[in-house]
């Protein structure tokens, strides 16, 4: 594996008395595609939301390209400066797209580069056009998100995330809110990203995608990484009984 760009060490998180992540450790190499699978409520979404600081945590540490996130202190984040850097370097794509409904497709993509990276409008729009071209939506750029299909919206969300030129993109169940016929177009864009060498952590229930695109599959069960390895090993010869049980449930249909 190449030098890790993300290093998660002994990450623990609780909501009140319920512990959702228990000492999770994971190192991710540059350009690696890691697919995280597991049952609903296993903690897999919470895990990737910790990586860009959308969730705080109580134990362990997260290192992204040398910037550190540390456990929350007395109701305060300890590392505001590092969090800011991490959010510039780590993009995120959400299950519900979360496009900005009051802005056009083009504005959705240019807003953060203009405001956060201080690009001038022209530069941001040129970059946005080519990104929208890449996700196949250049002709839709003056529409509002509400006028697009779910699959189109999610592709815009991917372009919006790419506009910040992140080094890593987190995908939080990117196809779970889509009608079945739109899943393919989003996965196709993600496949393209993986081919271009983007480092990706993908939480998904699309086992076909995991088998085909992932360098590594991580199975999370009750807040712990129970098993991980190349897709072939996980899908064809899982070592753990619980992994087998989970896979037989999701692969049955």
């Amino acid at each position: 594996m190449a030098a890790p760009i993300i290093e998660v060490k002994s990450l623990s998180k609780s909501y009140g008395v319920v512990q959702v992540l228990k000492e999770v450790s994971l190192a991710i190499g540059k350009g690696e595609v890691v697919v995280v699978i597991g049952a609903s409520g296993s903690g897999k979404s919470t895990f990737i939301r910790c990586i860009n600081g959308l969730e705080t945590f109580q134990g362990g540490s997260i290192l992204v390209d040398g910037y550190a996130l540390t456990p929350e202190g007395r109701g305060r984040r300890s590392n505001v400066a590092d969090l800011k850097e991490i959010r510039r370097e780590v993009g995120m794509v959400f299950q519900q797209f979360n496009l900005f409904p009051h802005k056009t497709v083009l504005e959705n993509v240019t807003l953060a580069p203009i405001q956060v990276r201080k690009w001038d409008r022209k530069k941001a729009e040129t970059a946005a056009r080519s990104l929208l071209e890449r996700v196949g939506l250049r002709d839709q750029m003056h529409k509002f998100p509400g006028q697009l299909s779910g699959g189109q919206q999610q592709r815009v969300a991917i372009a919006r995330s790419l506009a910040m030129e992140p080094r890593v993109i987190l995908f939080d169940e990117p196809t779970s809110a889509l009608d079945p016929e739109m899943v393919g177009e989003v996965l196709e864009v993600m496949r393209g990203l993986a081919r271009d060498g983007m480092t990706m952590i993908v939480v998904t229930h699309e086992m076909g995608f995991a088998r085909e695109v992932a360098d590594r599959v991580v199975y999370i069960d009750h807040g712990r990484i129970l098993e991980q390895g190349p897709p072939a090993a996980i899908f064809d010869a899982p070592q753990e009984e619980r992994t087998r049980a989970f896979l037989s449930r999701v692969l049955k249909h």
């Binding site: 959308l54 995120m92 979360n98 900005f100």
Partner: peptide, 14 residues
């Protein structure tokens, strides 16, 4: 919606 705030934050906006 809370997702709007999360999307903006994850893009690095203050």
């Amino acid at each position: 919606s809370h997702g709007q705030r999360e999307a903006a934050e994850s893009l690095g906006m203050s």
